[in-house]
Amino acid sequence: MSNESVASRVVRLVTERVPRAEAVTGSAVIRDLGLDSVAVMDLVMAVEDEFDLVFPLDRLGEVETVDDLARVVSGILEQRTAAT
């Protein structure tokens, strides 16, 4: 596990997929960054690989900003830690 925080790793994953060259911040609304619905689901797959977890698609309903995405990821990681 890298020392990089969950939030910064999520920002990095989003940045890699943003079609326009711009700085991605945690408060950025993901759909405003030019990612269509398929691109957002592809981002979820990348998040699953980065953190080695399952991110159920219905949880995208909780995600508007990059920070929201990081928050769901942190929640899934915490649940997993609690379960083990």
């Binding site: 399952v54 159920p56 698609l57």
Partner: peptide, 26 residues
């Protein structure tokens, strides 16, 4: 799948290795 109460995840198109990896995470 949006109408299903199950948890839904995707694997990379036509990639059996990716399917196996995602199944092992469930």
């Amino acid at each position: 799948v949006r109408l299903s109460p199950a948890s839904v995840t995707r694997f990379r198109h036509n990639d059996p290795g990716d399917l196996a990896r995602r199944l092992s995470r469930l």
